[in-house]
Design a protein around this nucleic acid. Structure first.
Lengths: 125, 125
DNA sequence: ATTACTGTATTAATATTATAGTACAATCAT
DNA sequence: ATGATTGTACTATAATATTAATACAGTAAT
């Protein structure tokens, strides 16, 4: 699984990591027992400080989402985060709200956006 | 439109304000030209400092979501019909590209987004 | 025991957020 | 022109959140 953080989003790095791991689990890309990148490796990949990764992993462990074992690594736990369909819907709402706000500031309507997306869909099929 | 902030959410006040205004626009409750509460009034309503409201409004203006006019107030952004068609199309492409990138990082497909937008459309009609 | 990897802990530095206070400037109704 | 309302600008301060630096400790393979 690939990780990406957006420094301009205003969302703290460690929270972005947490979100991505939760969603990775929700969509089945990460399953129980899977090993996460090491603290140092992910820090290098994202060009951030290892402690920032530590913080993300630790919060996830407190929630029971991951198991960490000193010396061997951090793994996806048995207890799945309560993210499911509701959380996914919330994220979709968030994304669409941002999209529409941005579109409207350029005089683009919901219909314009819908039309644009339909074209994308055709183009990709 | 009523505003509410949750001090316990961990989300900065100014960001909560921004979110609520964007959401209001997205669901049609706030339309172009509508006037937002004054800086001072909203500060009183939410029991926060006026500067915090200022910050929210300023960020929204930078994004082009609202227009502020000293002396008269802050308004939902005026659309700019003088943008030519080509520029509009280019902007739409950009917005959609950004949208899909963000959506896919959360495991949301183009189809998910389309579906979400259709719901918005129904809700607003 | 050594080596190289893992996470852990503590402290320090920096950035962000929120508040307070004060003064200024544009707009509008009168 | 006046007065009331609007947003703007600036400084200062404090609290909190976030990130960084550095040293420590467990695990596993050799």
């Amino acid at each position: 699984m690939k990780f990406l953080i957006d420094p301009k989003s205003g969302v703290p790095f460690y929270r972005q990591i947490i979100e991505q791991i939760k969603f990775g689990i929700a969509r089945g890309e990460l399953a129980t027992g899977d090993r996460l990148p090491t603290v140092r490796q992910l820090a290098v990949d994202l060009s951030i400080n290892p402690n920032t990764v530590v913080r993300a992993y630790r919060e996830l462990e407190i929630e029971g989402v991951v198991d960490t074992q000193q010396g061997s690594g951090t793994f996806i736990g048995h207890q799945k985060p309560e993210i499911d369909q509701l959380e996914k819907q919330r994220m979709l709402d968030q994304i669409i709200t941002d999209l529409l706000a941005r579109a409207s500031s350029y005089g683009l309507s919901l219909e314009d956006v819908l039309e644009g997306l339909r074209h994308r869909k055709e183009a990709s099929s």
